[in-house]
């Protein structure tokens, strides 16, 4: 136990650097993923087939192919056709595109869970579809999105450890480095695990608070 603490003290600074990178990757991917997800969700529920078919295709492929395969495709596959991505770009693109598909489904379900009468009431005032979405439907769906978005955030945080395989130096990669230079894999990965747990716990608390704050009107 004492050995573990002295190990932790020695390697914490470098592990924290990895943690910050993991956090950056997660926040960036969720941000881009949410933007992608919002448009894909709106496209999926649209009446126009030109929008709904490509959107459905996107969520079908991305949710059906392992993230690891997608990352390898971006980082190892694309250079073959002349597209070279840095580990960081490949990681952000891969994670964003992946979370975008899941978030699209979350947003679509949220929008469709709003009573049809809300849209009708908005229309009866003379609102356009876009105005009804922006003013009436999305603000209501938003609150219902918080719990599943919290889940998505946490699973993205953990999924980000996969980018270690495309040479991205983040928390998992850092732990692997320490493990192979010190020959102490047990301590290295327990430390990494604890840091992931700290991050996920913080997000669970943040999302819990958000959820409570947004229940004012119900």
């Amino acid at each position: 136990m004492v050995g573990f603490f002295s190990f932790l003290v020695k390697y914490l600074p470098v592990l924290l650097e990895g943690t910050i990178m993991t956090l950056q990757l997660t926040v960036l991917s969720i941000t881009f993923g949410t933007i992608i997800g919002l448009f894909v969700a709106l496209a999926k529920i649209s009446k126009s087939k030109f929008l709904s078919i490509p959107a459905s295709l996107y969520t079908w492929v991305i949710r059906g192919v392992p993230l690891l395969v997608q990352l390898f495709f971006l980082y190892f596959g694309l250079p073959q056709v002349g597209i070279e991505l840095s580990p960081f770009s490949a990681a952000v693109i891969g994670l964003s595109v992946c979370s975008g598909a899941y978030i699209a489904e979350i947003i679509r379900a949220g929008i469709q869970s709003i009573d049809k009468g809300q849209l009708e009431a908005a229309y009866s005032l003379g609102m356009s579809y876009a105005q009804a979405m922006r003013r009436i439907i999305i603000p209501q769906a938003y609150r219902r999105l918080i719990p599943p978005m919290g889940n998505e955030f946490i699973s993205m945080l953990k999924n980000s450890s996969l980018v270690t395989t495309i040479a991205m130096v983040e928390l998992m990669r850092t732990a692997t480095h320490i493990s192979s230079s010190t020959f102490r894999p047990l301590e290295s990965f327990v430390a990494a695990g604890l840091l992931y747990l700290v991050l996920t716990t913080i997000f669970v608390l943040i999302f819990g608070r958000l959820e409570r704050r947004l229940t004012v009107y119900e």
Binding site: G117, A121, Y123, S124, L125, G126, S128, Q140, R143
Partner: peptide, 24 residues
């Protein structure tokens, strides 16, 4: 056009059985 339909609708008030007030 949808724009024209919306314009005409804005001149017609509608009250629903289930109120359909905006809860937020």
């Amino acid at each position: 056009s949808l724009k024209n339909i919306n314009r005409l609708r804005s001149q017609i008030g509608m009250v629903f059985q289930k109120f359909n007030l905006f809860p937020h």
